[in-house]
Design a protein around this nucleic acid. Structure first.
Length: 519
RNA sequence: GGCGGUAUCGUCUAGGGGACUAGGACACAGCCCUCUCAAGGCUGGAACACGGGUUCGAAUCCCGUUACCGCUACCA
């Protein structure tokens, strides 16, 4: 249970407890409060894939253990925060289906709370006022550096007599609030890293409140997490060195620190931290590239987590079922777009064509192939088409691209296809004329009958078993392309009239160009 | 520099002292299926960073080295 995840801070040595690391509370254990987690991005850009994955793991944990997943926008850096990126974060999370509970918390709105917490620490003696200016500090830092010493605040303001402090405050001297780091070691049992310990002597008395009365990140986070009653903090492992400071703050405020889980980073193909240089890094980019949210989630989940067996393709429900912090990885993962594409192909072929319609329609409209209303009118036909295409596509964009020949009245012939399959113009025209006649005579426009008739034709034309000699030129006539779904499916989806007229068009084309030298 | 973190195929990973001549997946190559393209099936190459311990036995535990990453702000 959680009681084994004790934190050692300062004070008398405690007996070492049974070491049950990375263990989850069982849902049946009622002594364990329901977990509350949050995703706390700062709105200074789009929703990054790394952020999305952090959100996903928080969400997965909450769903798995019956807890709450909350959202907090850390907008205290007014200069860099924008409403636009706040919106991008909402949109990204919504697209992924990572829904949060309760109202969004805006950190900037909690200024009074942060100040009150700083005041509490001043009152209970865990923090003190510091009158050193930034310029003085910078100078001392530079001196230390010149001496090749590492700089640490020397606590001079902590030694100021009380009446001197009072005098300066009364005189209106600006001051920051510094936390007084106690002796000892600060450690915690991280859900992914097991125990991590920091000697307090390596941590300087850090500032928690600026001269303008605004909080420093570490205070704001702790104040807000306390107020939101967060019990599990899952975040990127770039926050590991902030954690001891935050734990000290919890203690100074008389609160029990939450459980921490530090997730590894995501890197680009070159092993460096993922950035714009690596191409698409915003989840919105992938949305527009035709990636399915379920595939994105699945792929992200596998970067830094494994269900512990060979399962890879999972639905959201399966991920929740299988999720366990034991499977969390310590090592940074490299983002491989190739595998994402593969994953998307898997999800594409798994998803029922009917459910795909809504995701494909915008692309169809954008490509000018059909309007949503037209597709709705021929919904059954469109679903049948999607069934043919989805297994061949890796992205939604692929689906749209491949849908093209089934929408345009006239098709254009791919030069490569013409060169390869229509090399002999006269002979091909003859094959197509025969095929047209055969198809026109088929009683019912359905695959089995058409296949039988065309194979008989191939036989009769002397192609023996090589019915492809008929099918391939026919495919070009029907789609203009060298590759397509099965030829009988194409015939069916195109319908009798359009199929026959496309063959006519092809014959006309072949006859018109047969005199000219091959292109 | 100080402190902290990490280290299994090119990439994502399985691995919790013997089941490891290290398993799966992506990518790559070949074959099968086949009207083309996919999908699918089969096959192949490909890894325990290095050095010391502990142990009858180490990918697995400990220490060190190296490499990489993070933090080291009145940024978040």
């Amino acid at each position: 249970g959680f009681e084994s995840l004790s934190l050692r801070f300062e004070g008398p040595p405690q007996p070492r407890r049974a070491f049950v690391l990375r263990s989850m509370p069982s849902p049946a254990d009622m002594s364990v409060p329901t977990p509350r987690l949050r995703f706390a991005p700062s709105p200074t850009g789009y929703l990054h894939v790394g952020g999305a994955r952090t959100a996903l793991f928080n969400w997965l944990y909450a769903r798995k253990y019956g807890g709450q997943f909350l959202l907090r926008i850390e907008d205290t850096d007014k200069a860099r925060s924008t409403e636009e990126s706040t919106r991008a974060i909402f949109e990204g999370l919504e697209w992924l289906g990572l829904t949060w509970e309760e109202d969004v918390v805006y950190q900037g709105a909690n200024l009074e709370l942060h100040r009150a917490d700083a005041q509490r620490m001043l009152d209970n003696g865990t923090a003190y006022r510091c009158f050193c200016t930034q310029a003085e500090l910078a100078e001392r830092r530079a001196e230390a550096e010149a001496r090749k010493d590492s700089f640490k605040y020397d606590r001079r303001c902590d030694r100021l007599p009380a009446d001197e402090v009072a005098r300066r405050v009364a005189a209106g001297a600006p001051f920051t609030v510094r936390f007084r780091v106690p002796e000892g070691t600060t450690s915690w049992d991280d859900l992914v890293h097991d125990e991590i310990a920091f000697p307090n002597k390596d941590i300087e008395d850090f500032i928690v409140l600026r001269t303008d009365g605004t909080p420093i990140y570490n205070l704001a986070v702790v104040s807000d997490d306390i107020a939101m009653r967060i019990t599990v903090v899952m975040r990127g492992d770039d926050h590991i060195s902030n954690t001891p400071k935050q734990i000290m703050l919890y203690r100074a405020l008389g609160e029990e620190p939450p459980t921490f889980a530090h997730l590894p980073m995501i890197h680009g193909l070159d092993g460096k931290k993922l950035s714009k240089r690596h191409g698409a890094t915003a989840v919105g980019d992938y949305q527009h590239l035709g990636i399915l949210p379920s595939a994105m989630l699945n792929f992200l989940a596998l970067l830094g987590w494994s269900p512990g067996n060979d399962i890879e393709v999972m639905t959201q429900a399966q991920m929740i079922e299988l999720f366990d912090t034991h499977g969390l990885q310590k090592k940074a993962a490299i983002f491989d777009p190739k595998k994402l594409e593969w994953m998307n192909g898997q999800h594409l072929s798994l998803i029922p064509a009917g459910e795909l319609v809504a995701r494909v329609v915008p692309g169809m409209e954008a490509a000018g192939l059909a309007t949503a209303a037209e597709l709705e009118q021929r919904r059954d036909w469109f679903v049948a088409l999607l069934d043919l295409l989805k297994v061949r596509a890796r992205t939604i964009d692929d689906v749209v691209r491949q849908a093209q020949p089934y929408f345009r009245g006239k098709i254009t012939y791919d030069p490569d296809a013409v060169a390869k399959q229509w090399k002999d113009r006269v002979g091909t025209a003859e094959i197509l004329v025969q095929a047209r006649q055969t198809l026109a005579e088929v009683g019912k426009w359905e695959p089995v009958a058409m296949e039988e008739a065309l194979r008989v034709l191939a036989e009769r034309m002397g192609f023996g078993e090589k019915a492809g000699r008929v099918f391939q030129p026919l495919r070009v006539a029907l789609t203009g392309l060298m590759a397509s779904p099965g030829i009988f499916d194409v015939l069916l989806i195109l319908g009798r009239d359009r199929s026959l007229s496309r063959i006519d068009d092809a014959v006309a084309f072949l006859r018109a160009s047969s005199g000219a030298p091959a292109a």
